[in-house]
Design a protein around this nucleic acid. Structure first.
Lengths: 177, 177
DNA sequence: GACAATGTAAAACGATCGTTTTACATTGTC
DNA sequence: GACAATGTAAAACGATCGTTTTACATTGTC
């Protein structure tokens, strides 16, 4: 485990913030090099291209988000989503946004999004199974929709959207217990 | 009522398609003029700027979407969302996407998104009230989250996401009846 | 302390961005 | 049929895009 961030990590962190708040296409390489304190030559030697940088950003975000939802109950899931939104803000899912921004035609981005959403679905299935004591794919699909809805309704409704999702999820889980 | 589309309408239709499938920032004005069969001079005389064009596109999409959900039951709402996705595809809400793409800093877009989401929320409250026979803001918030979730989960789960939302919505409505 | 590796700053690449202008043709109206 | 309005095609505006190159400084290793 590294105790300090090297320059490449710092670049990824800075890039995630810029892409998230300003959009992938609208963020220029000069803003990225400047924010990372790195020359463009070094940036290109390390990551190869803007699309590859976004691939790293999304892979890292996937790890970070997935770690924050290593949970055993549906209620804890929505609590974690609320925490995430409180600290990170709510601008909609960065994965879906960057996929749509690029028309699904940037391979590094498309691959990262598929990997993340597959992992996210599987995680929700596991959380539902742990909560209920058995698998329930039907309920898991409902919880997935609520989680995605909380993330996106929060853009204009704030954490109230997550509270509504959490309460609804509780009712749906109880209906299946 | 006009029976044929004039050139400005054709431009808005073409622009909606291009912005929706390729993203707002990634779509250049030359692709727009070409798709609309219109010189750039005429385009600028009519709409003023790219941001203003997007404002028109979003205003028109708002009207079209809102007309498609003039309904009196929650079940019919999700049926309409499923129809919409079957004919239009699912790339996530164009309003939220263009807002995020521009960092919320393009006035024409920010205004159109606020107007749309306010109207959307109000419509869901009305649909819930019509279905239940009385107002229920708590249920309406839950339905809003499910609708937003269906829209975005459908990007990778297809219409199955809408079916899951529809079924969950039925349970939540029954719990309040 | 030689030297390869790795970094920097800055210019340059060709392409494309949104927008305006030029020069002219087509249209609709009195 | 004169003439203002409205259209076109195409060049041009300055800015910026992602990426590469040049010329040189700093670093780490034997």
């Amino acid at each position: 485990m590294r105790l300090v961030m090297d320059k490449t990590d710092a670049l990824t962190v800075a890039a995630e913030r810029l892409f998230d708040t300003n959009g992938y296409t609208a963020t220029g390489m000069d803003r990225l090099t400047q924010a990372a304190g790195m020359s463009s030559r070094t940036l290109y030697k390390h990551v190869g291209s803007k699309a590859a940088l976004m691939g790293r950003v999304l892979a890292k975000r996937d790890r970070r988000f997935m770690q924050s939802i290593e949970l055993q109950s549906v209620d804890a899931l929505f609590s974690a989503i609320e925490d995430w939104i409180r600290t990170e803000g709510a601008r909609g899912c960065l994965f879906l946004r960057s996929l749509a921004e690029t028309g699904g035609e940037t391979p590094e981005i498309a691959a990262a999004v598929t990997a993340h959403k597959t992992a996210f679905q599987e995680r929700i299935h596991k959380i539902v199974a742990a909560d209920l004591g058995h698998e329930d794919p039907v309920l898991a699909d409902q919880i997935l929709v609520l989680a995605e809805g909380a993330t996106h309704a929060a853009v204009y409704r704030g954490v109230a959207a997550v509270s509504a999702a959490r309460f609804a999820a509780g009712l749906l889980v109880d209906a299946r217990r």
